[in-house]
Write a protein that binds this DNA or RNA. Structure first.
Lengths: 141, 141
DNA sequence: TTGAATGCAAAATATTTGCATCTTC
DNA sequence: GAAGATGCAAATATTTTGCATTCAA
């Protein structure tokens, strides 16, 4: 559990109970939560935690490269502590977000050099989203 | 110019000056504008146009499949009348958005079937963004 | 003429800022 | 002790809703 203290220190951040809670939760979950849902999930563990602190903390984590923030296109920002480049698949009905595993996971990354040589850009990273209906929603709609 | 009247009719929409203006502007531009910037660009052509109508109209256009809406991850929604599947490249500094042309354009689409067979999802479409620094910002930062 | 589209204002949503207090180092 | 983090409240930014008026078919 105190491994998260080390993570924070490694990134040059002060260790506070709130920060430990947030990075621990994000590291354990696979649900790509939003700021709001992170707050809802952990507020009971830290009585005085404020939503505002979650926002501020996530921004700091993102700036330091500890977590990634992405927008799947429904006015919702999601956070992910898995920093390995990987694609996501989104259910347009229930809005759940899953990782894409296997050799398609880093599809975008594999073409960065090629994009770079075919454009005027210096390319740093990519985001690849697939949209469809998940197992549960497929049969309903 | 009256071709846009036809487009609207083909999609089963009533033809209003505002709608013609919006679809015409979106069809001509390559700048992937936001609702706000569309409003700013065309408001002089239609004195009483309201930002609200731009929002409402874009939502209708999107629902009918006339335009696409996407979020590049900086709290900004962009609209695109080019409905051909194509990837985008985004400058993380100045936030400009360019199309990716050539054979990398439909990279995401090419893997939809493969993603489908490797997941529990029925996949409809994809969004692929590359992030970096554009020609102008590359030298500045 | 009638149902839909518009524009205004107000409301809702999500996120950010300012600042006093408290905590970490 | 000093710099940084927190929590509260207020502000901001963006988008949506309600509704009376206007317009397209």
């Amino acid at each position: 559990v105190e491994q998260y203290m080390k993570i924070l220190k490694d990134y040059g951040l002060r260790v506070t109970p709130q920060r430990k809670l947030i990075i621990e939760f994000l590291s354990r979950t696979r649900s790509h939560p939003t700021a709001e849902s992170i707050f809802e999930e952990i507020k009971d563990c830290s009585p005085a935690l404020s939503l505002n602190t979650v926002y501020k903390t996530l921004e700091i984590f993102e700036q330091r490269g500890m977590v990634r923030k992405f927008n799947i296109g429904f006015n919702i920002y999601h956070y992910d502590a898995n920093m390995n480049p990987h694609s996501h698949i989104v259910c347009t009905n229930c809005k759940r977000v899953d990782d894409i595993n296997g050799n398609l996971s880093n599809l975008g990354e594999r073409f960065i050099k090629e994009v770079e040589s075919n454009s005027d850009y210096e390319v740093f990273y990519s985001d690849l989203f697939f949209y469809g209906h998940c197992k549960d929603c497929r049969h309903t709609y």
